[in-house]
């Protein structure tokens, strides 16, 4: 086995050309991700990058690590299986707001509370891009530009970081695709933090939500150290405007990993059936 030393972000890029629109925020997330992987200094073959379905879920194919591009909404379940079967692997999951919070919403809740050691990045653009512009769970209720909901959805959006905190995620952060250096840092910190790390990345869809270009004027870095208690985090997030970036919560729950040690043979097990 050759020893990999000092791989660059470029080494973590594949030669597959992204399907994303020119100007999509996801390009910046991809760059931040490959930069983070290089900085983490984990051999390429020890990384499993898992996703579901949607524009952003295409990201594993654009990296040069092991990956699984599964079905819509189930990335977290595949990832949990990978990590529980192979605790030695570094597991990263990525996808969109629809994939993770709508069709995969139940898995999100249980991934937060199960606290398997992995990092989940939601590239949030508040829209279904791949199906050409429908409201997602993070879309504001009065967004009327979808043919599916021409009067707006009329229902309150999900606030992903609050949901993650309530469900028990052990590390919660928010980044903005327009600041890839910070996103990269957040990914590195998330991967290094034990347990389930959740990172919401505001990633504008310039095709269906061109107004999201203005996010660059709305985001602002959190000037505080990450909250370490649930109470403190809840207090801060209650008044959060949805554009605070940085590590918002860093908990200390131990990661979930069932014990496994061979203490018996199959012959021992079979003996119980002897009548």
């Amino acid at each position: 086995m050759t020893v990999q030393t000092a791989l660059s972000a470029q080494d973590f890029k594949s030669d597959v050309k992204p399907i994303w629109c020119p100007g999509c925020g996801d390009y910046a997330v991809l760059s931040a991700m490959t930069k983070a992987l290089a900085e983490l200094d984990v051999p390429r073959e020890q990384i499993a990058f898992i996703s579901g379905i949607g524009c952003s879920s295409r990201i594993p194919a654009y990296t040069n690590v092991y990956g699984f591009h599964g079905v819509h909404g189930r990335a977290l379940a595949i990832a949990a299986g990978v990590k529980l079967a192979r605790p030695d692997l570094t597991v990263i999951v990525a996808g969109g707001d629809g994939d993770g919070l709508s069709i995969g919403g139940n898995h999100f809740l249980h991934a937060c509370r199960r606290n398997v050691d992995m990092t989940y990045v939601i590239m949030d653009n508040e829209v279904y891009g791949m199906t050409k512009g429908q409201a997602s769970p993070t879309t504001s209720p009065d967004w009327c530009n979808s043919k599916l909901t021409p009067e707006g959805t009329g229902i309150s959006p999900v606030e992903p970081v609050r949901l993650a905190l309530a469900a028990g995620a052990n590390f919660i952060a928010r980044g903005f695709a327009g600041n890839p250096a910070e996103v990269s840092r957040l990914i590195v910190e998330g991967v290094r933090h034990p347990g389930f790390s959740f990172i919401q990345i505001l990633s504008p869809c310039i095709t269906y939500r061109p107004e999201e270009r203005e996010w660059r004027n709305a985001v602002h870095a959190s000037g505080e150290q990450p909250a370490q208690s649930m109470t403190e985090a809840m207090h801060r997030l209650a008044s959060d405007d949805g554009f605070t970036t940085g590590v918002l919560f860093a908990g200390n729950r131990p990661a979930f990993m069932p014990a496994r040690a061979a203490k018996a043979t199959l012959a021992d097990i079979e003996r119980k059936f002897v009548s």
Binding site: G70, A77, K83, L84, L89, H110
Partner: peptide, 26 residues
Amino acid sequence: EKTGGTLVQAEDELASINMVIGGSFA
């Protein structure tokens, strides 16, 4: 558990089958 394997109770069958896919991929 005694023979060195792992069993996880999943949140639903959608999760079970996908965890199994992940375990096998791994």
